[in-house]
Design a protein around this nucleic acid. Sequence first.
DNA 1: TTAACATGACAACAGTTGTTATGTTTTTAA
DNA 2: TTAAAAACATAACAACTGTTGTCATGTTAA
Lengths: 194, 194
Amino acid sequence: MSYDDRRIEVARAAWRVIVREGLDRASMRAIAQELGSSTGVVTHYFRDKESLILFALEQVFENVLQDMKTCAKAWQGIDRLEQMIFLALPLEASDKDDWKVWMAFLGYSVGRPHLVQEHQKRYDLLRQVISQELAALQTAKLIRADLDVALEANALIALVDGISTRVVICPEQFSAEQQQYLVRRHIHTLRASS
Amino acid sequence: MSYDDRRIEVARAAWRVIVREGLDRASMRAIAQELGSSTGVVTHYFRDKESLILFALEQVFENVLQDMKTCAKAWQGIDRLEQMIFLALPLEASDKDDWKVWMAFLGYSVGRPHLVQEHQKRYDLLRQVISQELAALQTAKLIRADLDVALEANALIALVDGISTRVVICPEQFSAEQQQYLVRRHIHTLRASS
DNA sequence: TTAACATGACAACAGTTGTTATGTTTTTAA
DNA sequence: TTAAAAACATAACAACTGTTGTCATGTTAA
């Protein structure tokens, strides 16, 4: 197994501990135990704890972003935007774990400016991707021309963020169908009235 | 100063430490220092740490809920719903601190089922309040009759949650006007088409 | 004046934390 | 085969954690 693969394996162990016990209780020892090894392995692959948990967060984000790019090739028009957004939603139970990690990091960032900055980077990247998609739909005259694409991208991100947070806390309040219905309805209000 | 007032004062010190340094770094000693006293004071007014931070969260939530009830008396019709939602948004910088505490707790709840349960209680209460408001608007024929009030309440909460989370992380991405515009537009899509 | 009580300071507790240093084993390459 | 390097284990470190008990004040009531 290569060095990079092993790093990912360590990060995935951290990821599991975070989901199961919380970010602040994801100690080096707990992560090593989850990995089935000693703390020496963890410290060998990561300079310190912060670089480890930052790497774990990056993995979660990168996975979603990759799925979105793959999705973009399989769809066209408004459906493409819809499917890309659907990817980010916790429609299945397995997706919920990704959001738990994301949420844990968000809460952990309070009072830690440099972690807030990390989140800003990721949110900005996400907004860029969605904005690009919206701009394409606008030139194709599929959504209204008077829309502020940056604002609408932010609105979509906010909607997904809000729904997902709620699903993590109150899973029974949002079925997969309801999640999709709300996103679909929101997107449909952006359609060109032609 | 009464016993209850002193409790609130301790909780407010905890609140400040959480906002400034993060929930996991809000130790009993840090809170005592913020309060300008010893840890003996903190332990005297709260059995243990959990009951303290839970009390601090309750304060934040109760404040918003009280504001909403006050607001309900001053407005009528769709404007009332709109104003109630506006209250929850971090329109000013001072409101952002409330959301920071809320977010810190959300992240802290990951891997702590009993804290998740606490959040469920609060979200359910919020949904109840909004549902009641929507139901009233429905009987007044101000919003569409075919709407699922519970779902729409959840959608509104999700939107506010998503926007607020984003404002805390990326304050420059959402101006107060944009926040209000998005909420207003969402609510307007619920209006009766008559 | 005495008793009861609230308030708070302080120190000590056992446990956990991230980090570092020092070994031991395994793999790799010459 | 052997030496160098990578991978991993173990242990120790100081710092910090929540909690507890004890002691010293005041403040109120009997």
